[in-house]
Every structure is written in C-alpha cells, then in structure tokens.
C-alpha cells in the first residue's frame, strides 16, 4: 500500500489525479477502523493532514465555509451559533477522542447513511454545497445531489472534498439521534430539523433509515404549506397537535429502513415519527419565543 503525503492542496489534487483509487484519510476515525476490520485494503492512502486550510472555517455573506477536516470538537466549540443543527449532531459523534479527530469531510467521503452530519446538512437547507475539487477545477455539488447510493456519493474519482458551504442559521435547528446506549453509538436512526424563517422554508434530514441520507420532502412541503396558510411565520402561534402529528407521520413515510443488528425497520419508522414531532415542537417553541420577544 502506498502512502501519499502531499504538503499542499495542489499537490493533493495532483496525487488524487495520478492515483484515482487512493483513499483520502484525515482524522482516520472511519478509514482506519475499516482497514483494521479488513473491509478495505486500498491501493494507496492519501494523507491530508499536512494541508492546514482543510481545518479552517470562515463566514462570508451569511455562509459558513467549513473546511473538510475541521474536527467535530471545534464545530461544537466554535460554530454552535451559526450552525446549531450540525453542532448538535457533532455532540453525538463517537467519543471525545473521535470528535477531536473526525470531521464532516470524512462523513461526506464515506457517505454512510449512518453518518451523523448528514441529517443536519440536509436540514440546513437546499443551499448547502459540497466543494469538490480536482486538477480539472472546482464544482459545488448541491447537498441534495451528493448522496447517490449506499456509501456512494457523486464525487468523481479524481475529486477531493475541500469544504462545505452551509448558510448561517436564521432560525432554530435541532438534531436527534437514537442509539441503544447513551453515548458512543452509531445511529440506529437520526433526524435533523431546521426552520428557515427568512425564506419561509423548513429543512429535514433522515439518517440511517434509507440507503442514503435523505430529506422528508412531503413533510417539508406539508409544514411549509401550513405555516404559510395560517400565517404562523408571522404570528408564531401554536402549531397544534394535529399538525405535529401529521408532520411526524410524513417523516416516517419518507423513510425506507431495513432490519439490521442495530434495530428493526419498524422501530426506525416509529422513532423517526417521535423525533420529528419532538424536534418540531422544540424548534417551534424557540421560534415562537423569538417572535414574541421581538413583538
């Protein structure tokens, strides 16, 4: 196995072009575990740890550019305000040691349906983009087009993930995850939810309950419709149990989970409905408070 250690981003892109089967590695919290279990024996590893800009973030015009290797612990410490949903998801990733090493780039590169970042990224809205780079240039892949199959994404063989663009939150965001113990657990299923008052939309993301992370499109549309028709964005009035219930059912219907060692498909559907109801309730309560305190 070759071990490639580029010093700069340009060298990394050149190396990836030259070795398209090389597996990028940064924190190694996923790649090393899978190698240990003999899941992968890649022809080459492409070590990105020398490329410091991957561990940087910035905010420009209300959009966070999050370096692919910014570790989860720093997302929690430094980005809880602009990215509350992702920060909550980051809290649920592995152990402190794993949060110190792992970042969103690895979640996206692995594209496992159980990756904790995905539901939060989907919920953050349709203007989330993965910055994919190669020697041929850079493209911004909309998050809705990124996940294409079980552990498959839409990157080309010569592309590396440079960063993710995520709009700064303009409303409350939540993230919930089910695990059968109270820490350090892979998601049985997960749900991300966000209110976007500026453009009167809501965002959802379902994890571990379909071949890919996915959005509950009908649930989003239903809720957006209700909020609009009833003028709730302006009033912040109560949603009512019927709306919350229906939203939960639509989220549940959006999933297509399987039975596996971590949980049954039935339980995943059931718990998604519960998490959808609860996260909607929490976010809407927070939003109502903001509206009322502004009034």
């Amino acid at each position: 196995m070759e071990f490639l250690r580029p010093a700069t981003w340009d060298e990394a892109l050149a190396a990836k072009a030259e070795h398209p089967t090389a597996l990028p590695i940064s924190g190694g919290t996923d790649v090393m575990v899978e190698m240990n279990f003999d899941v992968h024996r890649p022809s080459a590893l492409l070590d990105l740890n020398r490329i410091t800009e991957l561990t940087e973030w910035s905010i420009t015009d209300g959009v966070v550019r999050l370096g692919a290797a910014v570790p989860y612990s720093r997302i929690i410490d430094e980005l809880s305000e602009p990215l509350p949903g992702l920060a909550r998801a980051a809290h649920t990733v592995g152990s402190p040691q794993i949060r110190n090493r792992g970042g969103v780039g690895g979640n996206l590169g692995g594209a496992s349906p159980a990756g904790d970042a995905h539901p939060a990224l989907l919920a953050a809205g349709r203007d989330v983009y993965v910055e994919a780079c190669s020697v041929r240039g850079t493209r911004l892949i909309p998050i809705d087009e990124f996940y294409v199959g079980v552990k498959r994404n839409s990157l080309e063989k010569d592309e590396l993930i440079r960063s993710v663009f995520i709009p700064v939150a303009d409303g409350p965001q939540q993230f919930s995850k089910i695990g059968t113990r109270n820490a350090m657990v892979i998601a049985v299923c997960a749900f991300g939810f966000a209110l976007h008052p500026k453009n009167h939309t809501v965002g959802t993301g379902i994890g571990s309950a379909a071949p890919t992370p996915r959005r509950a499109v009908e649930a989003e549309q239903y809720l957006q419709g209700v909020l609009e028709e009833r003028g709730l964005w302006e009033s912040g009035d109560l949603l009512g149990t019927e709306v919350i219930q229906k939203f939960g059912e639509l989220v549940k219907a959006a999933a297509s989970p399987i039975d596996d060692v971590r949980g049954t498909a039935d339980y995943r559907r059931h718990s998604l409905a519960v998490m959808a109801r609860r996260t909607l309730t929490w976010t809407w309560n927070d939003y109502s408070k903001q509206i009322r305190s502004a009034a």
Binding site: H91, S176, N182, V274, M275, R278
Partner: peptide, 13 residues
C-alpha cells in the same frame, strides 16, 4: 436523561 446528548428528549415521555 435516556438518550443523553443524542438529544432525544427534553423531558417528554
């Protein structure tokens, strides 16, 4: 709480 930082309950259930 059950779920702890997985943030599944704020007292519900």
């Amino acid at each position: 709480l059950p779920g702890a930082l997985s943030n599944t309950s704020h007292g519900e259930g």
